[in-house]
Design a protein around this nucleic acid. Structure first.
Lengths: 343, 343
DNA sequence: ATCGATACCCAAAGCGCTTTGGATTATCAA
DNA sequence: TTGATAATCCAAAGCGCTTTGGGTATCGAT
């Protein structure tokens, strides 16, 4: 059932039916009611593609996920972020389009999305320190919002980020206060903006207590369980192993814990762990008492809020782009304790 | 730059330009080359919505994810499955549309997708034993493919599933062979088809050795770390606790392990664990030697292959719907060992 | 020279919607 | 009664593409 048929059934013009269903005032309440009733009865829905073509709005937001290789890992926070964004879209009448592309194709993908007019805007994931994608999107005039920030980019744009620097500074201070001097940092991939900010916070906290950062205690990689396990195993084998680990994700922290326990040590007594917790739905950090002491910030909320920022921006393109900086909360759990005396 | 402008620039008709770019034979090689060159130079891409409207194909596949509450958990296998499907789509020129809806709205969502003609087909996630969605999709004529199966549905439809029954039967036999008699089952949510099949396999293996299933050793819930931890804690407190756990997901198994180690027991010596491993990219089950003994089947591959099935079905709607049953492989890791003697 | 056949190209009609610019009728004050 | 105003409704022109149903040259064969 399309508009032509529906209006024919009603003995009205397409104009009137369209106006009635879209809430325009030029149609009497009586006929509007009649039209709505008929539309319901025939389960009429306007064809999205025709509507988009006529209005010029796709009512669709693009998320493009670059993958280096076909079997590269999918970022585990991805699902929760997406879920958050999607719930905003559905609340505001938008749809989400997801593309996975080879990362060499990512720039071209944005150009395509723009030229083909298949989306009204995009969310930019995983910004690197000097991210060329932002400049591209500005150049081609594609509305966008960034999950995170790119330190290297100067002109104002729309973003939402956790205050990674302050979170990791605070976490490091917490460990220092417990007497830890050798604190390892298991960070995200080098080049990622968030990883850089976290390292800065860590470094500043150490520096303020007169402790120099030591590359031997620092690792950077994709945040998998295996990365946490391996790195910890390596460091435990040092003459002076760290007494505490500051970790970038729960999954990674699970690996750290496994290495610690494999070595016959007890988490929270022999070795402390603080991790960042994205509050993933399937990986709750305990219920009553947190398992890990953690800097916590819900990535699902981030998705919801960033999507809202983007839709606002699309609605009102001339308003100055908005930024949101979220503070992570430090939740003390069972994974931290005073530095062992013998250390 | 749209088709009208481009063809005007070239001094050709829209017909010819369109045909040239779509590879039709009615245009000379010389002009085709000229047209392609101009298209590239002006970065011309056909407007997707106009193209869809004209061809009647959306070149888009829908995935609808129902959520009971706003903050219900996102299934952790979701990201990897989606990544697999998306890579197939991008290889075959399709896009993916993702909607999250309240689960009370799911049926209506499918009707909408059909009436609005916004997708060419859908992937059905998480089928329950008697899943009403399949009947609906058949009724409204929406092409679909199911990730899993619905035992209650009789008419043939397109699906791809892991042989959950044989996998869990095999895993149970493996534990029985090691001398375990009290084997716990931590299963997925009641009502899910896969959970039912797994329980059947488990039950059959036990039955074949004359062991009756004991509800005290069986739990069913969302497969979170916490669920694994709690269930194991509970069971460890029994007079005769299980000596082995058969678990439905790695994340859940991590919780089981935590409970075991919190109780001062050693995994693989005091207590054995076998888990299903979806081969999630961020949660590798060790590299050389698997941490957990596991029934393994990549959910990312499943996504790729199921998407292929669906696209084939869309291309050739009259062909009989295809089904794929994948066998999981049993990988022996460090989490299993002979049943303790005292048991 | 004439007649197909072939190669190449085009005008115009959709696809299903929104929206502009009236047209028609009802309403009402003067 | 009349002219102005407001209330309803409509025909038709897009949106940017594909595709139908020709049209015009060109060319070899008769």
């Amino acid at each position: 059932m399309n508009l032509k048929e529906l209006s024919h059934t009603l003995g009205l013009s397409q104009t009137t039916v369209s106006r009635a269903l879209n809430g325009y005032p030029e149609v009497s309440e009586k006929t509007r009611l009649r039209i709505e009733q008929a539309a319901r009865a025939h389960n009429y829905r306007p064809n999205t593609r025709a509507k988009s073509l006529a209005t010029g709005r796709a009512m669709m937001i693009g998320h493009v996920i670059p993958m280096a290789t076909k079997h590269e890992m999918v970022n585990p926070i991805f699902a929760d972020f997406i879920a958050g964004a999607a719930s905003t879209y559905s609340a505001r009448g938008y749809e989400m389009m997801l593309s996975m592309v080879k990362d060499s194709d990512e720039m071209q993908t944005y150009r395509n999305l723009m030229a083909r007019m298949s989306v009204d805007g995009v969310i930019l994931h995983g910004p690197r320190m000097d991210d060329e994608r932002i400049g591209l999107l500005e150049e081609i005039g594609m509305p966008f919002a960034v999950h995170g920030r790119a330190s290297g980019h100067t002109s104002p744009y729309c973003w939402l980020d956790v205050n990674n620097k302050s979170a990791f500074k605070r976490a490091t201070e917490f460990l220092l206060d417990l007497g830890h001097k050798r604190i390892a940092l298991l960070n995200g991939i080098e080049g990622m903006d968030f990883a850089h900010r976290r390292r800065t916070g860590y470094g500043e906290a150490l520096g303020a207590r007169g402790i120099a950062t030591d590359p031997a205690y620092m690792r950077s990689d994709e945040m998998t369980e295996t990365f946490g396990y391996r790195s910890t195993q390596d460091m435990l084998a040092m003459k002076t192993p760290p007494t505490a680990y500051l970790v970038s994700s729960m999954i990674c922290a699970i690996g750290v814990r496994r290495a610690i326990e494999d070595a016959g040590l007890v988490m929270g007594r022999d070795v402390s762990i603080v991790t960042h917790d994205d509050a993933l739905s399937y990986l709750r950090n305990g219920d009553d008492v947190p398992i890990f002491t953690a800097t916590r910030s819900s990535v699902r909320d981030a998705g919801e809020r960033l999507a809202d920022l983007l839709l606002d921006r699309i609605r009102d393109p001339l308003a100055p782009p908005r930024q949101v900086l979220l503070e992570a909360e430090l939740m003390v759990g069972q994974s931290t304790g005073p530095a062992p005396n013998r250390a």
